[in-house]
Amino acid sequence: MPLMRIRTEIDDRPGRLAVLTAALAAERANILDLSVQVGTDGVVDEFVVDVPPDTDRGALTAVLEAAGGSRTAVVPADPRELVDEPTRVLTLVARLRADPRALPEVLADLLRADEARSVVHSVDGPLAADDEPADTLTVPIDRRRAVRLRRAGLPFTATEAARADALVRAALPGVVSGPTRRRVSLRDGTEIVVRPLEERDGAAVRAMHERCSAESRRLRYFSAEPAIAQRLLDTFSRRSHGLTLVAEGPDGSVLALAHLMHVLDPGVAETAFLIEDQWQGRGLGRALTELLVTMAREQGLVELRAAVLDENARMRELLVSFGGRVRASGRPGVVEIRLRLDHRAGRPGGAGAEPAAGDRRGRSLARSVARSGRGTARGR
């Protein structure tokens, strides 16, 4: 029976995937593989199915969209694609290590692209959304080189961009270096140290919260509670929940917190900041954002999200300057800012845009803790 690769976005509510699979079954399609990816602006479900010889791709697309799918793509698949994915990727890594000059061909094999070529490329400055067409993907190799891939009929997803970046880092580990402790110079020349939060920092973090104004705490946590709850501090300290950075001043005191907290959406993290009042407006927020973007990409993340009070103009302007898109969150007075990490733009949308399919799936661990405690991680 012919094989087809299908990608479609669905409303991510309980039972919606079952409706989609039932529609495929009604067309006598047998699902052989299923994966969940992050697309240009939502969650994409990908199927590999075998179908009867007389199946029409246009009719199959119509059936899937009638079942709740959107932006559906159906293309022929090859039986050789039905291999164990980790084994296939490890084989490609070994091939690339043996011959680094084969990088374009290896990336084409990884993403099943029709065309791959080396190009001159620059990613200097903050990462920003690109205007590439959906069937084109540029994979940075270093600050001046890249590989450009094209694939007809099947738009590249953000997850695929992250896979390509991860393959480059695995085979060419000297290309990217992720800072874990770094000195940062602010606009006035002051040098601070940024490093991961440690359990021993608890007292310093509490003292920083107490020094922050009630307004800064409200914009950060949606609450002006003067003290940080111990359960929330414990969450920030555990790497299994995500990564929290602290900024240390010249006297060793903690000046700021910045977070990458895990959520349930694949390849996505929630970000948030709290900067002590007297250190705001000096370039510290931008420096922390640059570090978080670098670390997120090295972890294979493809999107950062921040829930921000609509009145928090400073946080909005900061993330938008990095290519973030402002969207409705479904909560009064709160917007969500989505920052893509793969140089690709999502569908146009402003503050009034409807939440994407993945909005209901992602729930940060920090939010879960805060729901039973005193606050949650929000942007500042």
Rank of each mutant, 00 (worst) to 15 (best):
R5I: 05
E9I: 04
P14C: 01
A18M: 01
V19L: 13
L20A: 02
T21P: 01
L32N: 04
L32G: 01
L34R: 02
D45F: 07
F47T: 00
P52W: 04
L60Y: 00
A62I: 03
T72P: 06
D78P: 07
D78I: 10
E81Q: 08
V83K: 03
D84M: 01
L96Y: 13
L96I: 05
R97E: 15
E105D: 15
V106M: 09
V106W: 11
D109G: 10
D114M: 12
E115D: 15
A116K: 11
S118R: 15
V119G: 00
S122F: 02
V123E: 15
D124T: 12
P126N: 10
A134F: 10
L137F: 07
L137W: 07
A152M: 09
T159G: 07
A161W: 08
D165V: 00
A170D: 05
A171V: 04
G174P: 03
G174N: 08
V176M: 11
V176N: 09
S177A: 13
P179F: 03
S185D: 03
E191W: 04
P196D: 07
E198G: 14
E199A: 14
R200Q: 11
D201G: 04
G202A: 12
A203P: 10
V205T: 02
A207D: 12
H209V: 00
R218N: 03
L219H: 04
F222C: 02
F222L: 10
F222E: 06
A224D: 15
E225G: 10
A229I: 00
Q230M: 06
Q230H: 11
R231F: 02
T235P: 02
T235R: 02
S237I: 01
S237C: 03
R238L: 07
R239Y: 04
S240Q: 09
T244Q: 05
E248R: 05
P250F: 05
V254P: 04
V254L: 06
L257R: 04
L257E: 14
L260G: 05
H262N: 09
W279T: 00
R282G: 02
G283N: 01
G285K: 01
L291I: 09
T294S: 07
R305Q: 15
A306G: 14
V308R: 08
A313L: 14
L318P: 05
V326G: 08
R327N: 07
A328E: 14
R331N: 09
G333N: 11
V334N: 06
R338L: 14
R338W: 13
D342V: 10
G346A: 09
R347D: 15
P348G: 13
P348T: 09
G352K: 12
G352V: 14
G352A: 14
E354K: 11
E354N: 10
A356L: 13
A357P: 12
G358V: 12
R367F: 11
S368E: 15
R371V: 08
R371Q: 15
G373M: 13
R374T: 13
T376V: 15
T376R: 15
R380L: 15
